[in-house]
Design a protein around this nucleic acid. Structure first.
Lengths: 228, 228
DNA sequence: CTGCTATGAATGAAAG
DNA sequence: CTTTCATTCATAGCAG
């Protein structure tokens, strides 16, 4: 496989001599400093929390599709020197996936050409996508959902109550059983505000919005990072 | 380049000495400023993405139902005890492996459905196994054995430039355009500097590794946000 | 503890 | 539509 090439000593421009006039320096007051520090802290916490949740959620392979594969790289990786591998196969963004699933379940068993076109244009508002992608997606979705009717899923034993079976038994069928949601109430809100964590005071984003708020404060109290 | 120590807070002396004497203003070099700016940008973007992702995921909690029915790990459980790792992926017992190998080499290039079924039931006498497992096994076995003869030659290029190597092979589809990959510039720098860019395609954080990495860089080259 | 390797699994795309 | 291929993700097990 190909992995990181610790070649380009990217490292957050440690030595990335900033612009030319590196003679004068920027100045910040204590106040600004404090503010900055605070914001950073918040961001850090949020990211940490989110990462944790993400990890948990996609414990092993779930991920309702958060692996956008458009460009396989994130900002950090970029600076880390990991080349931006160009060209990757398309992958729906979470939003797109959501929509696709909805449409799929809606019963439109046969997305006609026209349908596809429409869907495509709708989805392209949430990210790059082509008609072919949509077509393939439906094709695959159908084919794969079809192949899920063998596992009797008879005795769904408690995952954690494994007797002496070394490996899990029937993990057999990947996709089937739609009743799972009975065990999982939709109190999503609660999930994120986990009982023990102490940081949620900082970030309380039960539904979805808190984070957005945070994002809206990128100016960092007078410190305009954007204008730099 | 002295930022190799993820553990020890570097404390770039430049003036971030928030500690004691808080009488004079803090000073940051352009370099630090740049760094900060980048990090902020990255955090912002990531948070944005994460938020979006979670919104989508929690929206229907797994729309495709593509996961193991019973196993439904939610964040809550994760926090509770990090126990979500209950499921282990299947692995053939030596005996099963032996049989599988035999069958594989027997030439049955394509163990079709029926074949799979038969094999599965045969193997299940030696341990837990499902058709899917068998299917995947053959799939992987074939793919892997095929790729066992082209390792050395193709590399020669500098890692830093090899990004452009191949995005020519985008054979996508007949009828539509696949701008999705060509339109995205790979000017890494831009990623950080322009928050206004449509982040959808800029950041794609597929692997959980990305996030993890992020977490590991909270020191902000001198800033110790962690201690806050 | 950190990283690497082997390998089960998921999935977009293509072939039949 | 169904089956196969190719690529990638994620993780268990092992080595340094």
């Amino acid at each position: 496989m190909e992995k990181e090439n610790p070649k380009k000593k990217g490292v957050v421009g440690a030595g990335a001599a900033v612009a030319a006039a590196g003679l004068y320096v920027k100045v910040m007051t204590d106040e600004q400093m404090e503010l900055l520090r605070r914001q950073i802290s918040v961001y850090t916490t949020i990211c940490e929390k989110l990462a944790e949740m993400h990890k948990a959620i996609s414990a092993q392979h779930d991920l309702s599709g958060m692996k956008l594969g458009a460009l396989h790289c994130d900002p950090l990786m970029a600076y880390a020197g990991h080349k931006i591998t160009a060209r990757h196969r398309w992958s729906p963004t979470p939003l797109q996936l959501q929509i696709l699933e909805r449409i799929f379940e809606e019963g439109n068993g046969t997305p006609s050409k026209q349908k596809i076109k429409g869907i495509t244009s709708e989805l392209s508002q949430h990210g790059q996508i082509s008609e072919t992608n949509v077509y393939n997606w439906f094709q695959n979705r159908r084919a794969r959902s079809k192949r899920k009717q063998s596992v009797p899923a008879p005795n769904n034993m408690e995952p954690e109550v494994e007797a002496e079976t070394e490996f899990l038994k029937d993990s057999t069928k990947p996709e089937d059983t739609d009743f799972y949601d009975n065990s999982a109430p939709r109190d999503h809100d609660v999930y994120f505000l986990s009982p023990e964590v102490d940081t949620e005071e900082l970030i309380s984003w039960s539904a979805n919005g808190s984070v957005m708020e945070l994002q809206s404060v990128p100016s960092w109290g007078g410190f305009d990072v954007g204008e730099l």
